[in-house]
């Protein structure tokens, strides 16, 4: 037997103690023991889609963490989440709840938008007012599809056709109009919140610029649009609205990130996207009737100018957007 002064038992004991302390320290720092100690109360909420959320995902109010997701379960094809809210944090009963992401790369978390009521949620209560989360993936694909459709339609402009069915064209223009009307209202409503949209628009504009090139090549045929004053004016108006949009976008420069917080903007975007779809579909249906479009060079020029402006806006945005985020966008798209 080795005659060292410290017995094996003591040495082993010290080693085990040290490792247990390390274990406790690490467990404590990374939170499980922390939440256990704090306790709190639980509320539930149902989302259509809890994609990206996890147990222990944070719950925030105004960016301050007030709790964690405790459990995620399936409840009649919807995701039912149990949230643990820290003791002492009072959540008004009319609060809204939204799933958000920290940046494009970032994790999903839950934000509570506190209501104004003086009554507060208690253990086991349910938040009913759920704002659907933003799914960037979905937005990007929709924008992408819309842009493609748009491109195809523009291609069809090249084949100038007979002057039948002006009504169809009118319908298309009306669609464009209502779209731009929507756009304008949402822009004015949400000035300063726009930068994420611009983000999307950047992608669209890229597509658009290639369309513009197509148009340039097709100058001889397309360039000179219709003689119908009404139609001409409508088209002109549309272009003006587009111009306004880009102006708004340009003004919204640098306010990135606010988009995510505004639910109406999100909904508007969705609507806009579906409008674009509708509009392109309409044009597609009206195939063959577009031929009659006018011979006004200025309209063409205006269109081109508008496109360029959109592009410029997008470029300005690019400059202020972290490379990583753009990288991700392209990752999503291509």
């Amino acid at each position: 037997m080795s005659s060292s002064k410290i017995s094996p038992e003591l040495k082993v004991g010290i080693l085990v103690l040290v490792s247990i302390m390390i274990l406790f320290y690490m467990s404590f720092r990374i939170g499980r023991l922390g939440t256990f100690r704090e306790g709190g109360y639980e509320i539930t909420v149902t989302f259509a889609n809890a994609n990206g959320l996890d147990r222990r995902s944070p719950v925030q109010i105004a960016g301050v963490e007030v709790g964690k997701v405790k459990n995620i379960a399936l409840d009649s094809y919807k995701a039912m989440l149990t949230l643990t809210i820290k003791e002492g944090v009072k959540v008004p009963v009319d609060s809204k709840i939204i799933v958000k992401a920290q940046g494009l790369l970032g994790d999903k978390y839950i934000e509570i938008l506190p209501g104004t009521e003086k009554k507060f949620l208690a253990q086991g209560d349910r938040i009913k007012d759920v704002i659907p989360g933003i799914d960037f993936n979905e937005i990007f694909t929709q924008v992408n599809v819309a842009a493609k459709n748009f491109g195809e339609t523009m291609g069809e402009f090249k084949d100038i056709l007979g002057d039948k069915e002006k009504t169809n064209i009118k319908k298309s223009i009306a669609n464009i109009e209502s779209l731009s009307g929507d756009f304008r209202t949402f822009m004015t409503d949400n000035k300063g919140n726009i930068t994420r949209v611009v983000n999307n628009t950047a992608v669209v504009s890229e597509k658009l610029s290639s369309i513009a090139k197509d148009i340039e090549q097709g100058k001889g045929t397309l360039g000179l649009l219709v003689k119908d004053d009404k139609l001409y004016n409508d088209a002109k108006e549309t272009v003006t609205s587009l111009k306004n949009i880009t102006k708004d976008i340009e003004e919204g420069k640098g306010t990135l990130g606010k988009f995510a917080k505004d639910e109406t903007l999100y909904n508007d975007t969705k609507e806009a996207v579906s409008n674009i779809k509708e509009f392109t579909d309409g044009i597609k249906k009206g195939e063959g009737t577009l031929g009659k479009l006018v011979k006004d060079e200025s309209l063409y020029n205006e269109t081109e100018k508008a496109m360029k402006k959109i592009q410029k806006g997008a470029e300005g945005l690019e400059e202020i957007t972290p490379v990583t985020i753009l990288g991700t966008i392209f990752g999503f798209l291509f």
Binding site: L23, M26, S27, I30, G31, R32, R56
Partner: peptide, 15 residues
């Protein structure tokens, strides 16, 4: 980032 992404399960499963 460590605190955020490291779960106790990671440690325990490793042990």
């Amino acid at each position: 980032k460590i605190i955020k992404y490291l779960d106790p399960e990671d440690i325990y499963n490793g042990l």
